[in-house]
Amino acid sequence: MGRPQQPPVGLAVARVARTLSRAFEDALAAAGGSQSVWLVLLQLKINPGATQRDLAEALELREATMTHHLSGMERDGLLTRRRDPANRRVHQIELTEQGEQAFHRLRRAATEFDERLRAGIPPERLTELGDTLAMLAANVQHAASH
Rank of each mutant, 00 (worst) to 15 (best):
R89D: 10
E112F: 07
G99S: 12
H104M: 10
R107T: 14
V90W: 00
R83W: 04
L95Y: 01
R107M: 12
E115C: 02
I93R: 05
I93M: 04
R107G: 05
A109F: 03
R83V: 14
A110H: 14
L117M: 01
L117C: 03
L95H: 02
E115I: 04
A110F: 11
L95S: 06
E115G: 01
E115S: 08
L117Y: 00
R108S: 12
R89N: 09
F103K: 08
Q101N: 09
A109I: 01
A102D: 05
G99C: 13
I93E: 05
A110I: 03
H104P: 03
R116Y: 01
F113C: 06
L117G: 04
Q98H: 08
V90S: 00
A86Y: 08
L106H: 04
F113I: 11
R89L: 10
Q92D: 11
A110Q: 15
I93G: 06
E112N: 11
V90F: 00
N87C: 08
N87Q: 07
F113M: 05
V90T: 03
A109D: 07
E115T: 04
R116M: 03
H91P: 03
R88E: 11
R89T: 07
I93W: 09
E94A: 15
A102Y: 02
L95E: 04
R83S: 15
V90A: 01
E115R: 13
R108N: 10
R105G: 10
R105S: 15
Q92R: 12
I93Y: 05
Q98M: 06
A102M: 11
A110M: 07
L117D: 01
D114Y: 01
E100I: 06
T96A: 14
R105K: 14
T111F: 08
Q101P: 01
Q101I: 13
P85A: 06
A110P: 08
F103Q: 10
V90E: 00
H91Q: 15
A110G: 10
F113G: 11
R89P: 02
L117V: 01
F103L: 11
T111N: 02
V90D: 00
G99R: 04
D84G: 08
A102E: 05
R108V: 10
T111R: 04
G99T: 10
A109K: 00
T111I: 05
Q98K: 10
T111L: 10
T111C: 07
Q92H: 12
R116L: 02
T96Q: 10
R89A: 13
R116D: 04
P85W: 00
L117W: 00
R105M: 13
G99E: 09
G99I: 15
E112C: 08
Q98E: 10
H104S: 12
R88F: 07
Q98C: 02
L117R: 00
G99L: 12
A109V: 02
D84F: 09
P85C: 01
F103N: 06
R89H: 06
H91F: 15
I93P: 06
G99H: 10
R105C: 09
Q98V: 08
D84N: 15
E112P: 02
F103R: 07
A86I: 04
F113N: 09
L117E: 00
L95F: 05
E97H: 05
